[in-house]
Amino acid sequence: MPKAHLKVWRGDDSGQYVEYDVEYEEGMVVLDVVHRLQATQAGDLAIRWNCKAGKCGSCSAEINGKPKLQCMTRMGTFIDGETITIAPLKTFPIIRDLVTDVSWNYRVAETMPELKLSGPDASGHRRMQQIDIDREQEFRKCIECYICQDVCHVIRDHPENQGNFAGPRFFVQLANVAMHPLDQNPKSATVAHGFGLDYCNITKCCTDVCPEGIHITDNAIIPLKERRVDEYYDPIRAIGRKLFGKK
């Protein structure tokens, strides 16, 4: 049986890496190896995990420096004998080992606007066409692993921005509200602006790391920025508004 050489962060803020050798089998993912480590050598190792199928977004960690889901990272992607470094999400305060305090994200979630849908028609149905919702369905694939929040340099390297920047996950949610065909919220792009949209410099790391393959930048953030341009920075629309009144 091959052995994996792991370097795992142990302890809290003042912790350090501890190295382990753990046996693994073909087809295993990093999370399996960490579980085996837990069952055999480090019984008190703190990790989060739930579904082990890339659906719940609990086991996020930084593997060899890249934010990933442990359950979707196959051991076959490493070179034999390569040291595999497993660190907690670095943007968030460490609780212990691989577990971080992600409560900031939950606080931001509380500030998100709520959908307000128009009522059903006479037959009791809310009619929506598939072509009107497929864009939003992409956004709703989000599993809230917070990997995009972790990798986003706006808060990763500048935590002082956490007060006025919601992060990629929540721009996806704002785009969902903005583009919902039946939503009755004011359609002003200023809503997203209030969550620090223009702090994003579209360097696309969030899209690069999203385990669900959501095109966060191209389909959520840039369209939101463009909606703001419609209102404030489009000269032709501004002239149109002057000439023909509000469009």
Binding site: H153, V154, G196, Y199
Partner: peptide
């Protein structure tokens, strides 16, 4: 490397 950041705001 930058100490502060305000993006495109």
């Amino acid at each position: 490397p930058a100490k502060s950041y305000s993006g495109e705001s």
